[in-house]
Design a protein around this nucleic acid. Structure first.
Length: 215
DNA sequence: TGCCAGGCCCTCTTTAGGGCCTT
């Protein structure tokens, strides 16, 4: 596993909970290596049920589009190969994690790698943002966008840009040479009021023994 | 548009309630 490569993913779904019968209808993902997007994965998926008008309006994905799409199981098999053993990142990762695990379980594949959440980190790194929705953060940080929101690949790509922007901000503010994935995971759990002290101490610790902090 | 769920996080908290974020 490359310490500086991650798969950033996003699902569009029929609703908010796979435990309530909701299914994935689109997956988008990018492979982020050393801050650059080097590969992409995107597919609609046919959930076998009609989606609501709310979801059609929210995503721009229609029942006609999904009728022609491949089965979810076929797409998830392909995605399992794409994500391989890379660390995973998503915006509000608890949402995408539960859909990923639910759809993987249906094809008898178990996820082994860990998730990090760009939303939890952004609340700590950009506390002055108007809010921490992906679209707001993209505008707040003037990140690259094609203006498309609520489509899986576009949102995954913007989440990747946000991730790179946050790591660069942390590096420049606290004088880190590198930001290991596990440190980003820890940041998402540090109390907001303590984040500055935590990163100051972490940077000092890494400067002394950079090899001791893992990936 | 808001509801549905669930995790996170804040506060007028912890024997709780409500907002944020995802679709």
């Amino acid at each position: 596993m490359n310490n500086n490569s991650f798969v950033v993913l996003d699902f569009e779904t029929t609703g908010l909970s796979p435990f309530d019968g909701d299914r994935a209808i689109e997956i988008g993902a990018v492979l982020l290596c050393d801050g650059r997007v080097v590969n992409r994965f995107q597919s609609l998926m046919n959930p076998g049920v009609r989606i609501s008008s709310f979801i059609q309006d929210y995503t721009g994905i229609s029942n006609a589009m999904l009728k022609k799409a491949p089965p979810i199981s076929d797409v998830m098999q392909q995605f399992a190969h794409f994500m391989a053993d890379q660390h995973l990142i998503a915006h509000n990762a608890s949402f995408d994690r539960k859909f990923l695990d639910a759809e993987l379980e249906r094809i008898h594949v178990s996820r082994k790698q860990e998730f990090a959440c760009s939303m939890l980190i952004s609340r700590r790194i950009y506390p002055d943002a108007p809010n921490h929705r992906l679209e707001t953060l993209v505008n707040y940080r003037s990140l690259q966008t094609n203006g498309v929101f609520h489509r899986a690949l576009a949102d995954a790509e913007m989440t990747a840009h946000l991730w790179t922007d946050m790591t660069n901000s942390i590096k420049s503010t606290y004088n880190f040479k590198e930001i290991p994935f596990k440190l980003m995971q820890r940041i998402s759990k540090v109390p907001k009021a303590s984040i500055s002290d935590y990163l100051t101490r972490a940077a000092a610790s890494m400067a002394k023994s950079p090899a001791c902090h893992g990936s």
